[in-house]
């Protein structure tokens, strides 16, 4: 445990050395959020209520989405693990007396924690101020949202871990990552809230893990009836189930990979 905490704090510190990248992240997320919100405002101008969402809800979700980009890394970066498998650096990682999944989880949580504090919080605040949104008042919504962010981060890690270790079989994961980023963008509710999708499609997307990244955390913050089970607890359970499933699959595949591993490059 101590070693994982140390890895977590080193990664947090490592990301704190990338100051320009962080500032650029806050800027682009905020600007893109404003543009995305304007488009949705135009949509809601034509139709004031869609599947339980009003204009303010849509704008709030846009900024939840922009805030989540960092911690869940929907658009990347891939875990460093992917590159280490490709170059054979993974050999060094396998020599450590720590399970690779836990090692990389500690890594990613360090990165996510930094991102949450220095990228998500400013971006979200910008959104609330620019659009003069009243933040939700109920403490259980905020508590639920905090838990949802953690679970979304675990789901994001679980997905990215699977993308990365596909490299043990595929030798190059760029195709997997490109497909995954595209799918993740739409299926998570990142650009358009899932309530705006045709009903049947939205129902399918709500079964996939991607909805746990943005759609469900946003609905938990707003305590929407569209949540799984219609409650905040239901939403959290859905996220937790996906996080557990992805991490279990990741553990299983890690065992298979390390048994048949071919470490590349001399």
């Amino acid at each position: 445990m101590r070693v994982l905490f140390a890895v977590f704090s080193y990664e947090l510190r490592r990301f704190s050395t990338y100051r320009v990248a962080t500032a650029a992240g806050v800027f682009t997320n905020s600007v893109f959020g404003v543009i995305n919100a304007m488009v949705l405002l135009a949509v809601f101008d034509a139709k004031p209520e869609i599947n339980g969402y009003v204009a303010e809800d849509a704008v709030l979700q846009v900024f939840v989405a922009q805030a989540m980009i960092g911690p869940v890394a929907i658009f990347g970066p891939p875990l460093d693990l992917a590159d280490r498998i490709r170059t054979g650096e993974i050999a060094v990682d396998l020599l450590r007396p720590v399970h690779p999944l836990l090692w990389w989880l500690a890594h990613d949580l360090g990165r996510a924690a930094f991102s949450l504090a220095f990228r998500s919080a400013p971006t979200f605040t910008v959104g609330l101020l620019v659009f003069a949104l009243p933040p939700p008042a109920a403490p259980e919504q905020w508590a639920g949202f905090a838990a949802a962010i953690l679970l979304a981060t675990l789901v994001g890690f679980g997905l990215r871990y699977l993308y990365a270790i596909s490299g043990f079989w595929l030798m190059d994961t760029r195709g997997v990552h490109a497909t995954a980023w595209l799918l993740g963008t739409f299926a998570s509710g990142m650009v358009l809230p899932l309530v705006l999708f045709p009903d049947a499609m939205a129902q399918v997307l709500r079964l996939l893990p991607f909805a746990a990244l943005v759609q469900v955390p946003a609905e938990i913050l707003m305590d929407k009836a569209t949540l799984p089970g219609g409650t905040i607890a239901g939403g959290l359970a859905y996220q937790a189930a996906w996080a557990a499933a992805l991490i279990a699959i990741g553990t299983l595949l890690t065992a298979r990979a390390t048994r048949k591993v071919v470490v590349q490059g001399g």
């Binding site: 101590r2 070693v3 510190r13 490592r14 050395t17 007396p97």
Partner: peptide
């Protein structure tokens, strides 16, 4: 095995926990 972006002593400190 060293942490590319951190001071050398941090990577060395980690081995204690490892």
């Amino acid at each position: 095995t060293l942490w590319w972006d951190l001071p050398l002593r941090d990577s060395l400190a980690l081995t204690r926990h490892l």
